[in-house]
């Protein structure tokens, strides 16, 4: 077996590491010092699911389509004042509980896709870790707060036909 080290391959390898070192020293590293500086995730990044409570009719579509059943909805029917004067009072679904267990969630996005009333949105927010796994069950007020971080849907690449969803 030819074990005598032929110089070029070995030296080339040394060159690559030295080159990287010099680049790091002169141009800075490729890493980001996380708590001090943050990378902006892409607009479509699936960070956390935000809820617009007013749009939700508690139709339970998201609950049924969730592959690991991590959405919990409880609602009751209420009589709301009629739209027109003199009309009969309307029946509306009043949301009591809308919880998503992020310890179970697989971030597949099916619930956002099936929602027919645009009540669920993806937000790129990612800093919501908890020391205890049970604390990852977030209720509707918390989900509503994330609505502020939901970005506008990005424009589409040339040649796209239909308008994109969120």
């Amino acid at each position: 077996m030819a074990l005598k080290p032929k110089v070029p391959g070995l030296v080339k390898g040394l060159g690559v590491t030295l080159n990287t070192m010099l680049t790091t020293i002169t141009k800075g590293a490729n890493t980001v010092q996380y708590p001090h500086e943050k990378e902006a995730p892409p607009i479509r990044a699936r960070g956390v699911i935000a809820l617009r409570e007013d749009n939700c009719t508690s139709c339970m579509l998201c609950v049924r389509s969730c592959p690991d059943w991590c959405i919990y909805i409880e609602a009751h029917k209420e009589l709301a004042p009629p739209r027109r004067a003199g009309g009969a009072p309307r029946k509306v679904n009043r949301l009591e509980r809308f919880d998503i267990d992020y310890a179970l969630c697989m971030y597949c996005g099916i619930c956002v896709e099936v929602c027919p009333f645009d009540a669920l949105f993806w937000s790129p927010e990612y800093e919501y870790s908890e020391p205890k796994i049970a604390d990852l069950l977030h209720d509707k007020t918390k989900l509503g707060e994330w609505m502020e971080t939901v970005p506008e849907a990005p424009e589409l690449e040339a040649g796209a036909d239909n308008k994109g969803k969120k």
Binding site: T17, M21, T23, A29
Partner: peptide, 13 residues
């Protein structure tokens, strides 16, 4: 430090 720089990161900071 040197190992981190060779791997284009900063090492302990």
């Amino acid at each position: 430090k040197m190992m981190s720089f060779m791997q284009s990161r900063l090492g302990p900071m």
